[in-house]
Amino acid sequence: MTAADESGTPGALHPRGELVRRQSAWTRVTHWIWAACLFFLLLSGLQIFNAHPSLYIGQESGFEYNNSVLSIRAERRPDGGIAGITTIWGRTFDTTGVLGFSGSEDEPLGRRVRAFPASVTIPSYQDLATGRVVHFFFGWVLVGTMLVWFIASLINGHLRRDIVPLGADIRGLPGDVASHARFRFPRKRAYSPLQKLAYAVVLLVLFPLIVLTGLAMSPGINAAWPWLIDIFGGRQTARTIHFAVMVLLVGFFVLHVVMVLLAGPINTMRSMITGKYRIDAREGGK
């Protein structure tokens, strides 16, 4: 048995160690502001997407030719009913009830023909103008919080200590993957290699990417910084990447919450609220 196996027994079998100071106030405050921002950005973003629920590759949207990679629409069935249809890379799926056509039968048809359902858009009804107001407000808050977090983390060492994966993390990666696969999550003082990697990808790759692809959709920014849209290969490609990064961030969120539950929700939530985290006894002092 290796050392990791000994300390990795799940749940109540963890030997209780001391409470350590895990998260600085900067990390905790920016974490919760981001949580709120991403929630509202996602729901208002889906509202904006619903105004033209198709994604393309290139500068423009093909109306007389096909450069679409995703489209969601409603179609009339031969029997007279309405189906929600989703096409991804030329493959068509019936997504009635979720994408393309959703809502309860007593609602008017006009409200039911919609790409993403009312339960995941702000506002619940179709209203692009309002979706844009909410989206741009939280977009500014997200960017401001990113800047504050980056500067604070650079100064207080969070970035170097917990986020950027170093040589030792790369070497420890196979062992960490094996321990995750066995659902063993030792409570250590430092982040595990997979944790570092996940946070580095989200904070240093996906966050900047979703902001820059958002800006690349702006005709004003296109005129000011023409190179930005060239990096992404055209406005419609930028829009497609913006959507894809959203999907990745939603995936991260699901994984993140699952890991919080598996690693001990009380301990992890406490560390993100009060900053204090209980580590395993054998980890103490290191």
């Binding site: 105004a51 033209h52 500068q59 692009l128 005709p219 419609q236």
Partner: peptide, 12 residues
């Protein structure tokens, strides 16, 4: 030029 609609589509 490329015409960018508020709905999200573009056309040159």
């Amino acid at each position: 030029t490329r015409h960018d609609c508020v709905e999200g589509w573009s056309c040159i």
